[in-house]
Design a protein around this nucleic acid. Sequence first.
DNA 1: TACGGTGATGAGACAGAGTCTCATCGAGCT
DNA 2: AGCTCGATGAGACTCTGTCTCATCACCGTA
Lengths: 193, 193
Amino acid sequence: MARWDPNPRLRLVRAAIDLFAEQGYDDTTVAQIAARAGLSKATFFRHFPDKREVLFAGQEAHSTLLAEGATAAPPDATPLEAVAAALDHATASFTDEQRGFGPRLRAVVAAHDELREREAFKRAGLAAALAAALRDRGVPDTTARLAADLGVEAFHLGYTRWTDVDADDDAATYPALARRALDELRAAAAALH
Amino acid sequence: MARWDPNPRLRLVRAAIDLFAEQGYDDTTVAQIAARAGLSKATFFRHFPDKREVLFAGQEAHSTLLAEGATAAPPDATPLEAVAAALDHATASFTDEQRGFGPRLRAVVAAHDELREREAFKRAGLAAALAAALRDRGVPDTTARLAADLGVEAFHLGYTRWTDVDADDDAATYPALARRALDELRAAAAALH
DNA sequence: TACGGTGATGAGACAGAGTCTCATCGAGCT
DNA sequence: AGCTCGATGAGACTCTGTCTCATCACCGTA
């Protein structure tokens, strides 16, 4: 696993998750991550803008998928139906390896403000992208933002349940769990006023 | 304005906002901020855990105020009425100096991901505190989170309008603007399903 | 007035994050 | 073999953030 092997990015991600689980996030330096991946510190920063980002890479792709899904929904779909379509589209691409990383990822992030901060930011990015897609469908701004917030909350709630090892129902796919979460949120929102 | 003068914290905040406006956030070092406040770098980090935080200090106080306001609402108040009470309580304490900082603050934050990230995190903290207060009133978890999200969104929307120099209607107080924003959000949420 | 205790500050060393420049390497093309 | 181009490594550098220790102002007390 050295210098000129393929997939340097993925090697860095795996090395980082392993080291964070072994010795903690704070006690792991970027140089150590790079070394385990057979690379140098400089190369790490060519692939990721900072140390936190190695755990959140690919979130931009999720933004794109959510927006695509919402845009591709039938023209007469309601805002929340478009959000459901966005969830279907975005959750379909997740892999088993991503599911496997889930528990370790959540444990590390939960333990460090630095990482929870990045998570909150990424989440805001997802909501903004989804809201923009809804606005392009003609949904008014405030409605679009609220619907997008529900969608992103369902996206995360579904992810949490999908990667929860204590409740590993193999029939529960990520798309199905996200849909169910959205239904719950919709019901709660309807009961709000 | 040197070493043993009073209010070192506030002096640091003012120095930071001034320098960020003058030379930009990236080109301002912590040492420079401390020097302008007549203090040393070490003392800056005694008052703020990191460079970003000098712009967001006091957000914990807002969390407390929001929670207090929600808790103090009449027992028979609906979740959204409790949120309105929380906004009344939290927005009442803002000063004219805070209003004056608003435009510069928003401009600096908007220009740097690093700061927008911290803002998103603080926002999540406010929402969590408000949601916890609502849960303590007996509001179900999901409902509490949604209502809290609306409240925090109204809190920020109201702040933006209150500190918008282009629309400085002196009769528009922060509490009134926050209330109005909450009403708009409530209407949009009701129209969602 | 002198003295001692306490908390805030400064000075400076230090490790790690993140940036930058330049040399080197491998792959593909001619 | 020689050339080009993109990816990498090496290493210097600045700044953030931490830590230790000495110093200073203030306050109470003798």
